[in-house]
Write a protein that binds this DNA or RNA. Structure first.
Length: 359
DNA sequence: AAGTCGGGGCA
DNA sequence: TGCCCAGACTT
């Protein structure tokens, strides 16, 4: 791409000055600590600012330095991340931070070749940390930047294709303001978040309107082009809050890889196999004492849906506990990282329990 | 290049 | 409902 010198300079100035004037007051904008910028960028991956803010504040309070995070047990880490989603981000962040502590004496690298090798740090996050924390002129292309630049530069390539991102990275490297790399990159993202939104962009308030090809041609809301299809699978489960005669509850730890890795859940049985309760009773050597219906709901993930029906079962042990069975008290469950669908079921159990006590 | 990986907000 | 969100990793 060939930009005229004056176009480039004026675009940079309009964007940077607008950002300095209009930027939101966000917690991670009160620091230049590359570790804290790193934490914020990982949390912000595919996640809205308003969602991240409370998580970021609690996380930094709990793990103020790379050493604090490096030493943390995984269960404590996941508990901090509980509800934020994409839990491998947390594990990868800790792995990356441990690399920094061990190989780089706790100093986050300030160059792309080294920083991009860290676990969980991809092309975007590398550029974000380098530009925001170290003020380096590096590209940081996320969904916002692709949307903004596809409109400003009228780029009609399909942003669902991985190779398309290179076009935007090159464009940023040619357009970026060498005097204000941090403000330039953040300005593009802030513009995408506040003005150049996916639907009904506020072009009349846009600081770079006069540089925007799509605005001049009249149809900015039709960009970017994205062709993608999501085929969702439906899964059906019975979930059991199982309480024994000692008032303890049965929970399972999910496998270390895959969906909700290493998170805890109440026993789940995929439906339409055998009768779920019988399967459960046999698996854990328990006799059913009573059964109460709890809650039915859908939980929608990116690529699949869990159709849940939950029950409260009181049981008595009729043999030795199986290896996979772990019994917890109500108090102990508070420390376990539970995915949101399990939190919903646990909340439903607490409600019925409170109702019983009152009656 | 396509699939996997959470959860919530909004038209 | 479908799409999007300060994406990275695996295959």
């Amino acid at each position: 791409m060939n930009f005229h010198y004056q176009y480039k300079k004026q675009f940079q100035q309009a964007l940077v000055q607008w950002f300095i004037r209009e930027k939101r007051d966000l917690p991670w904008r009160h620091t230049h600590d590359p570790y804290k910028i790193w934490v914020s960028e990982v949390m912000l991956q595919q996640t809205r600012v308003d969602t991240v803010i409370p998580y970021y504040n609690r996380f930094i309070e709990e793990f103020p330095t790379p050493e604090d995070l490096a030493q943390a047990p995984e269960e404590k880490l996941l508990k901090q991340w509980e509800g934020l989603g994409y839990y491998s981000r947390a594990r990868n962040l800790q792995a990356g931070v441990r690399e920094v502590v061990e190989k780089y004496s706790s100093t986050v690298p300030d160059n792309r070749p080294e920083i991009i090798k860290l676990k969980g740090v991809g092309p975007y996050t590398a550029g974000a940390i380098l530009s925001i924390a170290y003020n380096k002129a590096e590209h940081a292309v996320d969904g916002n930047v692709m949307r903004v630049l596809s409109r400003v530069l009228l780029i009609k390539e399909d942003i669902a294709l991985p190779k398309t991102k290179k076009i935007f990275e090159q464009a940023v490297m040619e357009l970026i303001d060498p005097a204000y790399p941090s403000e330039f990159n953040q300005g593009l993202m802030e513009l995408g978040a506040l003005i150049c939104t996916p639907t009904s962009p506020k072009c009349l308030l846009c600081p770079v309107r006069e540089f925007c090809t799509a605005f001049q041609e009249g149809r900015p809301e039709e960009l970017p082009i994205k062709t993608k299809k999501t085929k969702m699978k439906d899964l059906f489960y019975d979930v059991f809050v199982v309480q024994n005669e000692k008032k303890k509850f049965l929970l399972e730890k999910r496998p270390g890889k895959g969906l909700l890795a290493n998170m805890w859940q109440f026993p789940m049985v995929e439906k339409s196999t055998t009768p779920s309760e019988g399967f459960l009773a046999d698996s854990y050597n328990v006799d059913l004492v009573s059964r109460e219906r709890l809650l039915s709901f859908k939980h929608i993930f990116s690529h699949l849906t869990w159709n849940m029906e939950s029950y409260y079962l009181k049981v008595e042990q009729n043999g030795k506990p199986t290896e996979s069975s772990v019994w917890f008290t109500e108090e102990e469950i508070k420390a376990l990282p539970l995915p949101v669908p399990m939190q919903k079921i646990w909340a439903a159990w607490k409600e019925t329990e409170a109702k019983h006590k009152h009656a």
